[in-house]
């Protein structure tokens, strides 16, 4: 019974969202507003069950970890944002999260976004037994990365052999990349659409298996 009602409700809301393809209407607007409320309500429960209860309330009241009152009080300062005369106090928890987050993020960003990427881009063009398309791919990847970087380098005018030709090759590589990403995104959306049609035709109407 629970599942049957669930499938009917899910199917009706699926149709409500698809009704937007015709034009915006009250049923679509209702579904749109509902999803905002439900997701926020879900996050409240999730944060309470995964952070507030096990990491703050239980250790304080169950394990006498009184030091945890400090982050608790710091967090409560967010509420001052709603009281204009002391709203500046909300900067303290933001400063804590922001400062420590930036500090933690600095070496990790350096590692993941810069060093690892450079390391992966510096590869041999050819080794024995490597098929020709891989050799070509390695050439495209190394010089393509360099050319795309030149395209994004705006401190020098894109003129001359290095910057001029480099940036021209760079935009071709970027267009190839954007085209591939676009094609991949379309495939992802289409497979979601197929999933919804399967839900309507299979789970709901039982027309297909």
């Amino acid at each position: 019974m629970y599942d049957t009602i669930g499938i009917w409700v899910g199917a009706l809301f699926t149709l409500a969202i698809y009704s937007f393809l015709y034009k915006e209407n009250p049923v679509y607007r209702l579904a749109e507003h509902l999803v905002v409320g439900i997701s926020m309500g879900y996050i409240i429960v999730l944060i309470y069950n995964t952070v507030i209860l096990p990491k703050l309330l239980e250790p304080i009241f169950g394990g006498n970890h009184w030091l945890l009152i400090i982050p608790g009080l710091l967090g409560l300062l967010y509420i001052t944002r709603f009281i204009p005369s002391i709203a500046w106090l909300s900067r303290y928890p933001i400063a804590f999260v922001m400062g420590t987050g930036m500090g933690i993020g600095f070496p990790l960003t350096m590692k993941a976004y810069v060093l690892r990427q450079l390391e992966a881009a510096v590869i041999p063009l050819y080794s024995s037994g490597m098929p020709w398309h891989e050799v070509l791919g390695n050439i495209v990847m190394i010089f393509g990365t360099l050319a795309a970087l030149i395209y994004f380098f705006f401190s020098k005018p894109h003129k001359g052999l290095f910057f001029g030709t480099g940036s021209k090759i760079g935009i071709w590589v970027i267009m190839l990349g954007f085209g591939a990403t676009f094609g991949f995104t379309v495939m992802g959306r289409i497979s979601l659409l197929i999933g919804r049609i399967q839900y309507l035709m299979g789970d709901w109407l039982h027309i297909i298996e």
Binding site: Y113, V140, M141, G144, L176, A180
Partner: peptide, 12 residues
């Protein structure tokens, strides 16, 4: 290859 080259440059 070309897609990864473009992505890598953007990521850098």
């Amino acid at each position: 290859y070309p897609n990864l080259a473009a992505k890598r440059a953007i990521m850098l």
